[in-house]
Amino acid sequence: MTIETYAHLEQRAIKRKGSRAMLESLLSKPLTAAEIKAIPDDRWLAEFTKKVFQSGFVWRVVRNKWPDFEDVFFGFAIEKILMMPDEMLEQKATNPAIIRNLNKVRTIRDNAYMISDIQDSHGSFGNFVASWDPLDITGLWEFLKKNGKRLGGNTGPYALRYLGVDTFLLSKDVEDYFTQHGIITGSARSKRSLKAIQDAFIEWQRQSGRSFTELSQIVALSCGDNYMGLQR
C-alpha cells in the first residue's frame, strides 16, 4: 500500500492540535552528530540502566530513586562497573535505596562490557552511535538487542531517544497508525514490518527534511486519542 504524503500527515496533525504553532511546540529535535559524540560513556550506561529498570515498572519511582542509583553504582563509571565481582552485584541488588531486582542489576555490568568493547573499536560509544548510518536506525536497535542485555523491544530505542539520538519510536499510536493504514500486518517487530516502517519514515524525511524524531511525533499526534491544543 502506498503511504500517505507527508503534507497530508502534517495537515491532519495541525488540524488535531489547532494550529501549526501548537504542533511545532510539541515537537523535539535530535542532537547533532558532534553532540552525540560528546556524550560520556557513563551517561550511555546510565540511560540504558534507567530504561531497563523503567521497563515494566512505574517510571516515576525509578526517577525518584535515580540519585541513589548514581551513588550506588559509582556514577556508572565504566571501569569501576567492570571491576565489580558477582558478589558485589548481588550485595548492591539488596540495597533498599534502589529497586531490588538482581537480574536487572546484572545488566549494568553486562551493558558496561558492551560499551567497553565499543571503546576498543571506536574510542567511545558516542563515536560509535554518531557513525551509524542514520537511515538504518532499526539496525542500531538490533545491535543493542543482540549485544546488550534487556535492550530489545522499546527499551533501547527509548534510551536512544532520551539521549538525543535521531530515532522514531514504536509507541502505541505509531504502531496503530501503521496497522490501520495497512502498511504492516501482525507484529510491528518483525523484520518485514520494521523495514516497511523505516522505509515510510525515510520517504517522509525525503519529502519534509524533518528528523525521524519529529516525524515519529507527528505520526503519533496525527492519530489516536491525543487531541490537545487550541481546538478539537
Rank of each mutant, 00 (worst) to 15 (best):
L163N: 03
Y162H: 14
N101V: 12
D68F: 15
P85G: 09
R16P: 07
R189E: 10
R189Q: 09
K146V: 01
K191P: 02
F57R: 11
F212C: 12
R109M: 00
K195Q: 12
K104D: 06
R189S: 13
M114V: 05
G18H: 03
L215H: 07
K104I: 02
I115E: 08
F201R: 00
S116C: 12
D42F: 13
D41Y: 09
E70Y: 12
A46N: 07
D173V: 05
G18M: 08
R192D: 06
E142L: 00
R150C: 01
V58N: 13
N95M: 02
I14T: 06
V52W: 11
H122F: 15
K172C: 06
N154E: 02
T155L: 08
V72E: 02
D166G: 13
S211C: 08
R206H: 13
T138A: 14
D136S: 14
D120M: 08
Q205F: 13
K195R: 15
L163P: 06
G123L: 00
L140R: 13
N127S: 14
K92A: 09
K172T: 15
K29F: 14
I184T: 03
L221S: 04
D166H: 13
S28G: 06
N64W: 04
K37I: 08
P96N: 12
Q11P: 00
T49Y: 05
L89F: 06
D110F: 10
D42N: 09
R106T: 02
I98G: 12
Y177E: 00
W44H: 10
T49Q: 01
I115G: 03
E90F: 12
H181T: 09
M83Q: 15
G186S: 04
T107V: 03
V219M: 12
V52F: 03
G186D: 06
L169D: 09
N154D: 09
F74I: 02
D68R: 11
G75N: 01
R189W: 10
Q207R: 04
S190F: 10
V219N: 05
A130N: 02
I98K: 03
Y158S: 09
A46T: 00
I81V: 15
K146T: 03
D68N: 11
H122R: 14
Y162C: 09
C223E: 12
W66Q: 15
Q205E: 07
C223S: 15
F178Y: 10
S193P: 02
L27P: 02
D110V: 07
A21F: 07
D173T: 02
I137H: 00
E35H: 05
K65Y: 10
G75H: 02
E79P: 04
G56P: 12
A33C: 03
Q198T: 06
N103K: 14
E214P: 11
I197P: 04
S222P: 01
S171V: 05
L82R: 03
R63Q: 07
S222E: 01
F143R: 00
L135G: 01
V129Q: 05
T49W: 05
Q207A: 14
C223N: 11
P96F: 10
I81P: 04
F143K: 01
Q207P: 07
D173R: 15
K172I: 12
T167V: 07
F53I: 00
M22N: 08
D225C: 11
H8D: 14
D133Y: 07
G139I: 09
Q205V: 05
I39G: 01
L23I: 01
D176P: 14
E24I: 06
D173E: 13
K92R: 15
C223V: 15
